[in-house]
């Protein structure tokens, strides 16, 4: 892909969820591993919003954390602007770090309660040595105004703000190192809808103004529909489908994507009779063999219980499903 800013290739992450050593020895249990992310590949193009959707535990946050370097991948690699992120150290890594940022879900936990807002926003500026003294203070004031707050708010503490305002502060902080790429892990899940609308609009405006690229993570399909150019659907750590933002909603390919769409409450009150959603997400420590979705899938075939479906390119995206592959979908 010519203009990919971020390339994720075969990304995999295990977690050791074994009991403590002594218990294992006594109960004669082997080590246990949980596969949170398995063999995930996608590209994020410069200037676009790439969204990851999936239900709880599908591996969204784990992928986000690996991309920003909070977690080491167990396998696979991540390229940022062509440079590998793993194995890069020291000054080169510092240069890379300045170019990406992350916005978190919980605006009550993502700001240090003991720091003034100005300090919080200035931390990246200081860390990367971008400005200091009066210049830095001016920059902080400017950023606060960019996100719709006032320069004087720099002197306040986070607890003096509402959830939506705090998320604005978190965005101002993320912008302060002038990044090109921002990973947003459920940035509006903790907010009320009327405030969510403000934040989503703000994020859109900032993207246009600064030419930002977003990795936008959410469990809310309607929000993703509104924000994303392209969407990846995750199920139990694997990408089920990658599709163009509009197309996923008009013609979902993977059976899981269809089920998710059917589950979204119908605000239009169109009287649509939806298919009953079957079953629940299996335990990730002990996933079903073959296609992990097979116990819930209406199109399940014998092969699905044995083999893991591989991604097959379809149009501008891909789907990992035998039914799609065999044209049964």
């Amino acid at each position: 892909m010519a203009d990919a800013l971020v390339q994720v290739q075969g990304l995999t992450r295990y977690f050791d969820v074994s009991k403590p050593w002594l218990n294992r020895v006594i109960e004669r249990e082997p080590k246990a591993y949980l596969t949170a992310v398995a063999d995930v590949s996608f590209d994020i193009r410069r200037g676009e919003t790439f969204a990851l959707v999936g239900e709880s535990g599908s591996g969204k946050s784990t992928i986000a954390k690996m991309i920003v370097g909070l977690l080491e991948p167990s396998d696979g690699r991540i390229l940022f602007d062509g440079q590998p992120m793993t194995g890069t150290d020291g000054a080169a890594m510092r240069k890379l770090r300045r170019r990406f940022q992350m916005i978190f879900q919980d605006p009550f936990a993502s700001l240090n309660p003991r720091w003034r807002v100005g300090e919080i926003i200035a931390e990246p500026i200081r860390t990367f040595g971008l400005a200091s003294g009066a210049e830095m203070r001016r920059e902080v004031g400017r950023l606060l105004e960019v996100v719709g707050l006032g320069a004087r708010d720099a002197a306040k503490f986070p607890h003096e703000f509402s959830g939506g305002q705090r998320q604005r502060i978190a965005i101002a902080r993320a912008l302060s190192s002038r990044p090109e790429f921002i990973v947003c892990d459920e940035p509006t899940s903790a907010l009320d809808v009327s405030v969510q609308a403000q934040i989503l609009n703000l994020m859109r405006d900032l993207q246009d103004e600064f030419g930002l690229t977003y990795l936008f993570i959410s469990h809310d399909l309607s929000v993703v529909r509104h924000m994303a150019n392209r969407i990846g659907v995750l199920y139990l750590g694997r990408l089920a489908e990658v599709a163009d933002g509009k197309r996923l909603f008009t013609e979902p390919r993977h059976p899981y994507s269809r089920m998710l769409l059917d589950a979204v409450p119908d605000l239009e009150m169109s009287g649509r009779r939806r298919k009953r959603v079957e079953g629940e997400i299996p335990n990730p420590i002990d996933p079903p063999p073959g296609c992990a979705f097979h116990p819930r899938c209406p199109l399940v075939a014998d092969r699905c219980r044995r083999e893991i479906p591989q991604p097959v390119a379809r149009g501008d995206g891909m789907a990992a499903c035998f039914a799609v592959e065999e044209g049964r979908g």
Partner: peptide
Amino acid sequence: GSIPTLAQ
């Protein structure tokens, strides 16, 4: 108006 919908 502030709720994003699938048909939006």
